[in-house]
């Protein structure tokens, strides 16, 4: 039961996020019920009202699933406590099926893993997936609680613990990679972020805060030296300190969904080529061609970041110590 509530809520969130991308708008109040017996009808109506109430938490409160976690503690998973004997899936299935995805804990983990790989191998920073990460962290907390209750001699405990460690590694590595990118491309990321609307920010609020403080801190430090330079020269202009990700670097990728047209620009000859990406096919192409599909809802999985792995602590040309000494 718990699992289903969780699933349903995640679907709703999923739908909302799709709606944001302009592909689908979510409606929750579309459901019909057929029932011969009047009493059953009233009963099921009442039940659905309860569920609607729960779902409305979602609309009122963005951190909905956290509330639900406190409502249905994680221990309920195995003990099959039934709170309401109606499947929430029924309610949601009344909506059209195409845009729905199962959002079990397993799926959340998969999404985080995919986001992690893409983040790791793409040259620029991708939209954040804080919802999934936080959800997974909640799950981990619950599982740790459950494990603590089991006896220490149980061989299952160690297996589960190792699995937890692995998940934790994925999460921390994902967030670390993002931080490294923010640090490297600080100026650029902040500039781009300022042009984006509130809903499709790439950074989470906390990351944005981090980026701003980091930039300010670095500027202050540079200023302690720049201050002593002669006038005219005591400023460092943006173009010199900016570090740009190399968007034309090549990536190996696997296509998760059929994409009708991908345009590959040939910068040398100034030509364009249009190709079709088949489901499950693998390609090697410039990142810039597929960037939008990587960003939008897991269309593409990047397998390897192929050329010039210069991502982490890349100096700008201006700061590159080797460039400076050996001219």
């Amino acid at each position: 039961m718990y699992e289903t509530v969780f699933t349903a809520l995640f679907r709703l969130r999923r739908l909302k996020s799709l709606g944001r991308l302009g592909k689908h708008s979510s409606k929750t109040n579309k459901f019909k019920f057929q029932s011969s017996d009047r009493l059953t009808a009233i009963r099921s109506l009442l039940e659905k009202l309860i569920i609607l109430f729960i779902l409305s938490i979602d609309i009122l409160n963005k951190k909905n699933y956290k509330m639900l976690f406190s409502l249905f503690p994680l221990t309920a998973i195995n003990n099959s406590i039934t709170i309401m004997d109606i499947d929430i899936r029924e309610l949601i299935d009344d909506e059209d099926d195409e845009n729905q995805e199962e959002m079990t804990a397993q799926k959340v983990l998969q999404n985080v893993e995919q986001a992690w790989l893409n983040e790791k191998f793409s040259p620029e920073i991708l939209p954040h997936q804080t919802d999934y990460v936080e959800c997974l962290l909640e799950q981990i907390k619950g599982m740790e609680g459950n494990l603590a209750k089991l006896s220490k001699t149980d061989p299952k405990v160690d297996l589960h613990k190792l699995e937890l460690e692995r998940i934790k590694f994925v999460i921390t590595s994902y967030l670390r990679t993002r931080l490294k990118k923010i640090e490297s491309f600080c100026v650029r990321v902040l500039e781009e972020e300022a042009t984006r609307s509130e809903e499709d920010k790439y950074l989470s609020p906390a990351e944005l805060q981090f980026a701003k403080e980091f930039a300010l801190n670095a500027d202050n430090h540079f200023d302690t030296i720049l201050r002593h330079m002669p006038q005219l020269y005591n400023k460092l202009d943006r173009n010199k300190k900016i570090i740009e990700p190399n968007l034309n670097s090549f990536v190996f990728l696997k296509c998760n969904k059929h994409i009708d047209s991908v345009i590959i620009k040939n910068t040398l000859e100034g030509q364009e080529e249009e190709i079709v990406l088949e489901d499950n096919s693998q390609h090697l192409m410039p990142y810039s061609s597929v960037a939008e599909f990587v960003k939008n809802a897991f269309f593409i999985q990047i397998i390897i970041y192929y050329l010039c792995y210069i991502l982490i602590s890349t100096p700008s040309k201006y700061f590159n110590i080797k460039n400076v000494i050996y001219v």
């Binding site: 190792l162 931080l179 981090f210």
Partner: peptide, 27 residues
Amino acid sequence: TLVSYMKTIGSDTGLNLTQDTKPPKSL
């Protein structure tokens, strides 16, 4: 800056990103 960022991850105490730097092979 780093610590205040790490505190915001997750719901209560945050997450220490400097841990778990290598993929775990064994417990």
